[in-house]
Write a protein that binds this DNA or RNA. Structure first.
Lengths: 220, 220
DNA sequence: GCCGAAGTGGAATATGAATTCAACTTGAGA
DNA sequence: TCTCAAGTTGAATTCATATTCCACTTCGGC
């Protein structure tokens, strides 16, 4: 199984490409062109393809540790004695990472087809956050109607502000987060059966939108 | 100036194309292909191009009345005696329209290059909403630190949930709106100089991202 | 230093949507 | 009915990004 090690120069290029690709994806998002990566790294694009024939794999390699970092944040948040303090701290920390890394935000907030790595990452975070949430409710810090899915929702909401304001007011998301968290505490939410796996469905890809047609039957 | 009227059959096609294009953009968003439109309408794509050589113009034609409708909602909201009731009603109505029309949401929430029509539309809505906001604050229904830009922010936030949940739980945005509005009422927001035209900047297009390069100086 | 496997560059090609256009209809006025 | 400007079509072309591939280097073992 053990692949033969790369030649010295190839290994150097590989690292350079990883660095470069990460810098670009952190700044511009996951959809940077292989050509951009190659150019920025000063290699030919053939080299990028040779080393990373599958973009998803490249992304996984680049962001694995970042995802772990978020999981770690969730763990630390669970250490808080005050569950609400832990929850708000986690949200802020997570979003701060995303603010500094566009690609990470895209992965965590979905919208693309997610790799196993990302799915598992979210699956590690969700229960930790849900636990914090449950404890906060038990402590009377949050209304009982708040669901784990609401945390995902808030994440999406604040993330949208971050995306929209990135080049205008890079910290506006903090204000949005303040609003969202206050809303969670004070909103009178309708009770709702813990229709969980709503979370999973939220991140599931919209399925194959087969027949684009049939959109419009001209009125008779 | 008066263009000669279209031939009967051409006029029929034009209408059919408008209907079809609107149906598609309402369902799938503004980026539907001219070919999709043509196919769905049963014409050749050349016909679409002949009639609507500029996509932005097509979009303007299709959505002008929808935008007017939103402006009208804002007007009606201003009639409310209770400003907060008016504001929440407006937000909900506006988002409801967007929920039924993906393209409208894209226009109103920006992200694309906006046409004059859209910019003017937003410019008609903003002061109405801002007025409602000011009155709500004066009535003690909202903290004084809430700014008009916060309404835009909330719009973006709820819209993001709508987009993410559209095919999973088409009403989830209502829950998000409840949270956001409650947050506005209860959040302790830092005072902030009415840096308005923050709103305009939020919608301004990210400028020409010239040189993609210079992203990564390989570490020495 | 020599050799071949490993590695590289970037032109060539594949894709897919956007746009054009020349050959082919058709409506409607004389 | 006849004519032709107006209208239509879809194949061909343009663009832009994705992917392949092979002639040309370079590394590292002998």
């Amino acid at each position: 199984m053990a692949e033969r090690p790369l030649r010295r120069d190839a290994e150097r290029n590989r690292r350079l490409l990883l660095e470069t690709a990460h810098a670009l994806m952190a700044r511009d998002g996951l959809e940077v062109t292989y050509e951009e990566i190659a150019t920025a790294a000063g290699t030919g694009m053939g080299t990028v393809y040779r080393r990373f024939p599958d973009r998803q794999e490249l992304v996984d390699i680049l962001f694995a540790e970042h995802i772990d970092a978020v999981v770690e944040l969730a763990r630390q948040a669970c250490q808080y004695d005050d569950p609400w303090a832990g929850l708000t701290w986690f949200m802020e920390q997570q979003l701060e990472l995303e603010a500094g890394n566009r690609g990470l935000g895209q992965l965590l907030r979905g919208g693309h087809q997610s790799s196993e790595l990302v799915i598992r990452g979210r699956a590690r975070i969700t229960p930790l956050a849900a636990d914090l949430l449950k404890r906060a409710i038990r402590a009377g810090q949050l209304p009982a109607a708040v669901l784990p899915a609401d945390l995902v929702t808030i994440h999406l909401m604040v993330g949208a502000v971050m995306d929209a304001a990135r080049h205008v007011d890079p910290d506006l998301w903090r204000r949005a987060l303040t609003v969202a968290l206050a809303g969670l505490q004070h909103a009178e939410l309708p009770a709702r059966q813990p229709d969980d796996n709503l979370i999973d469905r939220l991140f599931a890809v919209p399925a194959a939108p087969r027949d684009k047609k049939a959109a419009h039957e001209p009125a008779e």
